[in-house]
Design a protein around this nucleic acid. Structure first.
Length: 277
DNA sequence: GTGACCACCTGGCCGC
DNA sequence: TGCGGCCAGGTGGTCA
């Protein structure tokens, strides 16, 4: 599923291929995907708009046009494909953007969880979701104290807290499992028991994991591929996620699977024994 | 303010 | 082979 590295890969790929194109028309085949306005208004506002830039905040993509911005979230299995006008529509393609050069950008989403919403191009950061995002671990400068302040009173498992996008933006199930492995921490450990230096270590390790994943084009677990069908290679680098029953790459102990906060969680019982209190 | 729970949705897998 | 049930999971909403 798309997390920060996958969304960043999509952004870079799309930017290289569709920047400067002008939308001639839009077809929406699943109306619930469009938030904040009705489909008719969504389409009419996008017609004639030229794409100027594509930005990313956490797992959100922001398409910047002449007069409007479109905020898109891929959720579980959303993907963008650039295809020629003549190609037959796949049954899971729910939104098609037709460009004036006869190419099309198609949004495909098997589970229909993804969302798109239009907003003012100068005020998209006030959108619900975007405005509450925490810092990104891959940012050049991190206010570690601010992250610690958000973590220190939380009684939930550290895994649950790391998945909270208002604490750190961009981490999802895969990369939280990998970050916790790298940090030697059990996923179910209470967040409030961590010291400031432990939180700093977690943020730094999440940065290492995310930057490596971006370099390799993200992960291609289950059905996920980036735009234009580009397949990531980070899944070959995973230490614990989806490796239940397989030997740990460090100590050869069998990787275990459990549930934390309702999420499937993988960990090494030998390497992840770091207890602080 | 915090935490738990639920809805959204469909393909894949498993057991019968 | 076909069917039913469960699981996967990011986010927002609701409720306690």
């Amino acid at each position: 599923m798309p997390e920060l590295p996958e969304v960043e890969t999509v952004r870079q790929t799309l930017k290289a291929n569709i920047l400067g194109k002008t939308i001639r028309d839009v077809d929406v085949f699943y109306e619930k995907m469009i938030h904040g306005t009705d489909v008719q208004s969504f389409v009419s506002h996008l017609k004639g708009q030229r794409l100027l830039d594509i930005k990313r905040y956490g797992k959100y993509l922001v398409f910047l046009f002449d007069e409007v911005a479109m905020v898109s979230h891929l959720r579980m299995e959303g993907r963008y494909f650039l295809k020629h006008l003549d190609l037959v529509r796949d049954k899971h393609e729910h939104v098609i953007f037709y460009f004036t050069d006869d190419s099309t950008l198609r949004y495909q989403d098997t589970r229909k969880f993804g969302t798109m919403e239009l907003c003012d191009k100068d005020d998209y950061m006030s959108m619900k979701g975007l405005k509450k995002l925490g810092q990104e671990p891959i940012a050049e400068e991190i206010d570690y104290d601010l992250v610690y302040q958000k973590v220190k009173n939380r009684k939930q498992a550290i895994k649950t807290v790391l998945l909270d996008q208002t604490v750190l933006a961009g981490l999802g199930n895969i990369y939280v499992d990998e970050t916790l492995f790298l940090s030697g921490l059990r996923p179910e450990k209470k967040a409030s028991t961590l010291r400031k230096q432990d939180v700093k270590m977690l943020v730094r390790n999440s940065k290492i994991v995310l930057e490596k994943a971006i370099k390799l084009g993200g992960s291609s677990i289950r059905t996920y591929t980036s735009s234009l069908g580009v397949t990531g290679r980070f899944q070959n680098e995973l230490y614990v996620h989806t490796r239940q029953g397989e030997p740990c790459k460090v100590c050869e102990t069998k990787i275990l699977k459990t549930k934390v906060g309702g999420r499937g969680t993988y960990y090494c019982p030998t390497c992840q024994t770091f207890k602080l209190s």
